[in-house]
Nucleic acid binder design. Sequence first.
DNA 1: CTGAAAGCGCTTACAG
DNA 2: CTGAAAGCGCTTACAG
Lengths: 341, 341
Amino acid sequence: MRRAVSGSAGIRDVARAAGVSVATASRVMARADYPVAEPTRQRVLAAARALSFVPNALARGLARARTETIGVVVPWLANPYYAGMTEAIDGAARDRGLTMLLGLTGGDERRRESIIDELIGRRVDGIVICAGTDDHLAGRAPDALGVPAVLIGAQANAGFPMVQTDNRRAGYEAARHLWSLGHRSCLYLTGLPTWHDFHARGEGMRAFLAEAGAPAALEVCDGLLDEADAYRFVREACAEGISATAIVASTDRHALGALAALSDAGHEVPGRISVMGFDDYVSSGYLRPALTTMQIPAAQMGRRAIGLLVERIEGRAVSDETLFDATLIARASTGPAPHAG
Amino acid sequence: MRRAVSGSAGIRDVARAAGVSVATASRVMARADYPVAEPTRQRVLAAARALSFVPNALARGLARARTETIGVVVPWLANPYYAGMTEAIDGAARDRGLTMLLGLTGGDERRRESIIDELIGRRVDGIVICAGTDDHLAGRAPDALGVPAVLIGAQANAGFPMVQTDNRRAGYEAARHLWSLGHRSCLYLTGLPTWHDFHARGEGMRAFLAEAGAPAALEVCDGLLDEADAYRFVREACAEGISATAIVASTDRHALGALAALSDAGHEVPGRISVMGFDDYVSSGYLRPALTTMQIPAAQMGRRAIGLLVERIEGRAVSDETLFDATLIARASTGPAPHAG
DNA sequence: CTGAAAGCGCTTACAG
DNA sequence: CTGAAAGCGCTTACAG
């Protein structure tokens, strides 16, 4: 019905130019380890080069039922945490010859579902989902998805392999750090309660403080979406008189807002009040005072996710869940509590 | 030879379930505006839903010679400028029903070329290239690419449509801002000389200063890749005695490094020295002192690029080159020059 | 080592 | 409004 009109040469053209059948041409283009006579191979290769043949990945994918493509779904790129993770995922995928199809959800669950359908429609070989606020995945079971999938940073989700940071422990360590500096009253600034990463961090802090015998030492303010929210909240808190000697922000973004607010309120950090965050963006070390933070190994997590995914794709599922640890990066924004000084 | 083993239903299954031919089933799934009897359409739709049919985009793309896919090539995501631009591009593409295939070059031209080949192999309908350091594109001509392409932030490149910021003018305005504050000696911290965006900014500054009668007022230090490089350089400069009263950084990242170095050297900003950058990351307004910067409309540029690309894809090329203007966002990091105060 | 042919899952001119 | 069939550009068992 239609004829090839596209300028690009097809395997048929290559075959003709090399004087072989398309089967043979295909065999040399498809894989290096096919049994083809060396001179034949060379002729085909030369023809392909001469015609600057680029195999049609659609046709290949259709025929092979394998697209060498993985879907990656992420909330945003605006957050350095996700940007870094996405970069790491892309790098790891590329190293294995896989191309990344990126879907940005904007934190909208409905959009996420449609993105996943889209990816399945494009027949990706697997999917990595960087979860955030919720991960019921509209009730999708791992098998119902039709393709292997691995979750990053999600709470336990029916049967999906996962890679995570031990957020509870990270929170625990954060509280311990502050406690050891003499802080006995902390304010935790966090996002929506449904973001379980953040929630787990808070739980970890609470656990430490309870063990330390000061269960009431933690005050939580949630619902803060970004630096602007954190800024406003802390600014008001300062105006009303802030009693905590330390602020823990659920991300470095929140910490940045808090830092700005404290500066504008004339509260010295860490002299009057200490501040710490979670994530460790590259920029955090260049703030002044430099930000103390619990570093989350986003790049490692991304790479590990690809590792798990490829295991699944190749049908050799070994590992299942991977837990990473956050690392305390102590910098200038945390110091001895004023009354302890 | 092979049978469909995959769990997902195909158009054939839908047709069978609905009691129609695959042709008819395809027609209702493919487009809403096909002439199909309403009851028939309903039966097909019901069958599709019941079987949770997701059309195979590979087969469709092969048959239609259109994939509803665009390739986007970007150096990194680690830089908020590119992250924001990529997000905007993705959003604009999604709004038009196009899926983004993202390729990260890491600033490596060879990798960029292989990514472009990869994208062409996947038969994207068009390509957006966020250029950086070089854009000879290995000598590729617009037509030789085989698909429509538009460049963002590249210097004039044989025939490709482009969207850009008027960097020269942005530099000019930056210099004017500083000059009006009494600064007569500026230091420009920048990346590799091959990054023409940065180079143009420097040229613009130089042009203003020449007009102002102080052509020697600009000192340039290039080769600074990130905040770490900027930090080191400024730290040393401070140690040796810095004579400039203002530092202009080619990006906010560089400015961040400079700010940290000045703080560590005990140089007050803007009392002793003013600092400004280019880009305007969301975080820049939360630095203390808040960073004065020339805001580059990255999101708008990304959206415009998609607009241009779609025009090309649909064969109605109207606009060709688009120039955006940077906007001065004056904040606390720039102030009157010390001797002018 | 090589070729002829069926098949991957859709779409769409062509005929009713 | 609907169906039978060719075609999109590859791959790969099957037979030499």
